[in-house]
Amino acid sequence: MGQQQGAYFVPVKSYWPIVAAVVMFLTVFGAAHWLNAEPGETGFGKTVITVGFIGILLMFFGWFRSVINESLAGKYDAQVDRSFRMGMMWFIFSEVMFFGAFFGALFYTRMFSVPWLGGEGHGVLTHQFLWGDYAAAWGAGGGNGPGNIGGNFQTVAPWGLPLLNTLILLTSSVTVTIAHHALKAGHRGKVLVFLGLTVLLGAVFVYAQAHEYMEAYHELNLTLHSGVYGSTFFMLTGFHGLHVTLGTIMLAIIWLRVLAGHFSRDHHFGFEAVAWYWHFVDVVWLGLFMFVYIL
């Protein structure tokens, strides 16, 4: 399908979208069935979720492969490139709003629900009649609510591992930017070094985060069950960790694509999309470090 001057590009038909819809359905259907299985029951949920998840991986591989092949064949003009950029930007914006829901939950519980349960302002009667003994506090000794859900716990100290993780992510943002500039300058060796460094830093971050979780569970008794403190802590850092993991995988694939010579000095949207995504998880982390760990 040759391109004519001034003509628009419309891609050929593809079976990947319908495959994607099927495997996404299988994954969530399996998950729903699995969650509703009676204790001890061996439903088919786990099998379906596994099939669906493997299907999703294969779908991503196949869909991206066909897009990369089309891109390498020079089918994408500047207009398609702009569409891709807009798609990625608005996808990241939707991710920002997703995290916004959880940050909103964090701010609301810290600013309103926990103090109200302690008798402040609006919640004086709830406090008096239900939980007269409860002294509101965030973090250890109150952050798990008047029911002391999950038992006493301690919080993760911000100036240890979390600070290190902050430095790791900030450094990785710098290295990915150096790699980007090197790509624009056409220095592939330098790109590989600094992009590889970014992947490495991402992996170290995920490892450190896993280590922190182990410590929280085994030594601090801070778990997902630790009232609303535990809920917000693990859901926010958990979703962020998931995004870093995804970002690291994406960076690693981009590294392989650089190695394969897929990118040119002025045609490397795949690289830039992943770099944007990486900066986004970095910024989310700064919010987490500030509002979850320090304050």
Binding site: A101, A105, W116, G142, N144, P146, V228
Partner: peptide
């Protein structure tokens, strides 16, 4: 995405023991 976040919290409150909407755990 905000709706997705809200229903995800419902899901974890029911199946994974979080306390977003449980006053005894400090939620609301």
């Amino acid at each position: 995405p905000v709706l997705a976040g809200a229903v995800t919290m419902l899901l974890t409150d029911k199946y994974f023991g979080t306390s977003f909407f449980n006053a005894a755990g400090g939620g609301d």
